[in-house]
Simulated assay, not measured.
Amino acid sequence: MVRPPRKEASMADVARLAGVSSQTVSRVSNGHPIVSEDTRERVLAAMKDLNYRPNSAARALKSGKFRTLGVILFTLATTGNVRTLEAISASAADEGYAITLLPVATPTSTSVRGAVTLLGEQVVDGIIVIMEVRLLDAAISLPPHTHVVVADSDAGDRYSVVDTDQSGGAEAAVQHLLDLGHRTVVHVAGPPESFAAQRRAHAWRRTLEKAGRPVPAQVDGDWSAASGYTAGLALAADPTCTAIFAANDQMALGVLRALHEKGRRVPEDVSVVGFDDIADSASFLPPLTTVHQDFAEVGRLCVDGVLRQIREETTERGTTLVPTRLVVRSSTAPPPRG
Rank of each mutant, 00 (worst) to 15 (best):
R158P: 10
A57D: 07
D276L: 04
E8V: 11
I127P: 02
R329W: 03
S330Q: 14
F66A: 02
V112C: 06
V266Y: 05
D249Q: 11
A46P: 12
L85F: 10
S89I: 12
E193L: 00
L259V: 01
F284Y: 04
V273T: 02
V129I: 15
L180E: 05
D13H: 03
H147A: 11
A196F: 05
A172C: 08
K62N: 12
C241F: 04
S281G: 14
A155P: 07
H176S: 01
A151F: 05
S91G: 06
R265M: 07
D165V: 01
L142Y: 07
R205F: 02
Q250N: 09
V112E: 08
R134Y: 14
G70D: 08
S111D: 03
L321N: 00
P287Y: 00
E86Y: 06
I88P: 03
V20C: 13
V255E: 04
E261R: 15
E121R: 15
A279V: 12
E268F: 06
A92L: 15
I140V: 15
A18K: 03
S141W: 13
R325S: 14
F74Y: 11
G181P: 06
L178C: 04
L73V: 03
S271R: 09
G80Y: 09
Q250E: 14
V161E: 08
A170Q: 04
G263P: 13
A217I: 11
H202Y: 12
V2W: 08
L85Y: 03
L17H: 08
S56P: 05
D125R: 06
I99M: 13
P144V: 05
R311K: 09
T324I: 08
P335C: 13
